[in-house]
Simulated assay, not measured.
Amino acid sequence: MPSIKALLFVSATLFGANALAADKAKPDFVPDAAVQRAATAYAAQAVATARDQFGIKLDGTDASMVQLEAVLARAHASYVAKSPRPSDEQVMAVARMYGSYLGEVVRLKHGGTWGMAPLGGQTLPGMRTTSGTNVWPWTHVSQRISKGAGNNVVDYYKVLLSK
């Protein structure tokens, strides 16, 4: 008869193997056509809003990230000036729009796919670059609006292109 230690070892080994198999069975990115459609619509809204509210042209080029950063700098200034501060939902509404623009420039100029990807214990809309890296443009733009220039989108874009 096997010892208790041997049974515990076998049990732990099997449990660990099953846990690993379950983790591998869960994809870390799932392409999602609905997220793609939403991102396309939000990006078009970002172009129109930047033009109409700020007189800034977002033309879909790599160089337009400088203009996007200017829009987001204004959004951050507005965010910190308001009392009470805008809610997370209000910030995310703006972040979806401008984050979609950012992601669409990446996708259209350099390749990538919109979908759902895990981040911090949640599954959120994001992208997978052509090299297989998951990125979350909406989340990053939300951080730019609420936390400031340390989350500069020009720098973020350069990092995305290197992945």
Rank of each mutant, 00 (worst) to 15 (best):
V141P: 01
A25R: 13
G121A: 08
V106Q: 11
R107C: 07
P118D: 07
D88Q: 14
G55I: 01
D23V: 07
E69I: 01
K57R: 13
V35L: 03
Y98N: 02
Y101G: 01
A77R: 11
D23R: 14
Q143K: 13
R85Y: 09
T49N: 12
D155M: 13
A50H: 10
T49C: 06
Y101M: 00
A50Q: 09
V80A: 03
G111S: 05
A117N: 09
S142F: 06
K26T: 11
K163V: 10
L161M: 09
A77K: 12
T61I: 04
V154N: 02
G60Q: 01
D155A: 15
D88C: 02
K163N: 11
L108H: 13
Q67V: 00
A75Q: 14
A46R: 02
T130E: 07
E89Y: 10
L8R: 15
S131A: 15
A21F: 13
Y157T: 01
R85M: 07
E69W: 05
Q67F: 05
V135S: 04
A12E: 10
A149P: 12
V105W: 04
R51T: 06
V91M: 03
H76L: 00
W136D: 01
P27H: 05
P137F: 04
G115D: 00
S87G: 04
L14F: 13
D155F: 12
L124N: 08
P84Y: 09
M127G: 01
M116G: 03
S11R: 09
S11Q: 08
Q53C: 07
K57F: 05
Q67Y: 06
L68I: 01
F15T: 14
S162I: 00
A70T: 10
Y156K: 13
D28K: 14
S3F: 09
S100L: 04
